[in-house]
């Protein structure tokens, strides 16, 4: 087994290779505006570090968000196209699950990432491997009651300390965690879902009003 994992749903552009036993190479760069430029060179670097070529990969794991759409699509489009070119399966893993896995907490907690527009993407977990709620997007103040008293991992927690006073590492997802979680689930015989984006919001689309009258009154 050789899995290539990647995630672009948070400000991190992160890539990892997992050979079935453990992660053998990885790269993470934080630059929210350059996912498109950074991802392919990162894949190339990680493969070179492992002394392997992409065609040795037996499967792709992609973080499906939720996350800001433009960056999120870079990772998903790359994963889909690798899958097509190599003829290998592409698995989707919720980005928040990757963060929860890396947070490595035993008790109940929350994962929250930055959804911009003063909102967070978030979900509640029973432990690092068990998500209790569907990923959602909300204003922190509106969910304060639901997250009260719980530790919270992710950049969303750091951004809104009033609502998430117990912020916990990590800030961003890592492909290494995503890969380890995917391998664990695959070894347990679980089917991983197709890599479909979790947008959670409808596209911004203003229906133009009737045309503006141009005749002066």
């Amino acid at each position: 087994m050789l899995l290539l994992a990647l995630d672009t749903a948070t400000p991190a552009v992160t890539v990892a290779l997992h050979d079935g036993d453990d992660v053998i190479a990885s790269s993470s760069q934080v630059d929210a505006r350059r996912h498109g430029e950074l991802l392919l060179p990162a894949v190339d670097r990680v493969l070179a570090e492992a002394g392997l070529r992409l065609d040795a990969v037996t499967g792709i794991v992609a973080g499906t968000g939720p996350g800001p759409y433009t960056g999120l699509r870079v990772g998903l489009m790359t994963a889909d196209t690798f899958g097509l070119a190599l003829g290998v399966p592409v698995h989707g893993v919720c980005t928040l699950d990757g963060l929860a896995y890396a947070a490595d907490l035993d008790g109940p907690f929350v994962v929250a990432t930055d959804a911009r527009r003063k909102e967070v993407y978030w979900a509640r977990y029973a432990d690092s491997r068990t998500r209790l709620t569907d990923p959602a997007v909300d204003r922190p103040a509106d969910i304060a009651g639901q997250v009260a008293g719980l530790p919270a991992a992710g950049a969303g927690a750091l951004l809104y300390p009033d609502v998430f006073p117990q912020a916990h590492e990590p800030e961003h997802v890592s492909a290494a965690a995503l890969a380890r979680l995917a391998v664990e689930r695959l070894k347990a015989g679980e089917e991983l879902p197709a890599p479909r984006p979790l947008y959670l919001r409808r596209p911004d689309a203003q229906v133009p009003k009737n045309y503006k009258v141009v005749t002066p009154k």
């Binding site: 498109g36 991802l39 894949v43 433009t70 489009m77 790359t78 994963a79 070119a85």
Partner: peptide
């Protein structure tokens, strides 16, 4: 359109690299 272009560029890079 920036976001639209990026989808095609991501696909093309991945395809070219993989092949």
């Amino acid at each position: 359109l920036a976001g639209a272009l990026l989808v095609g560029v991501s696909a093309a890079k991945a395809y070219a690299y993989a092949l």
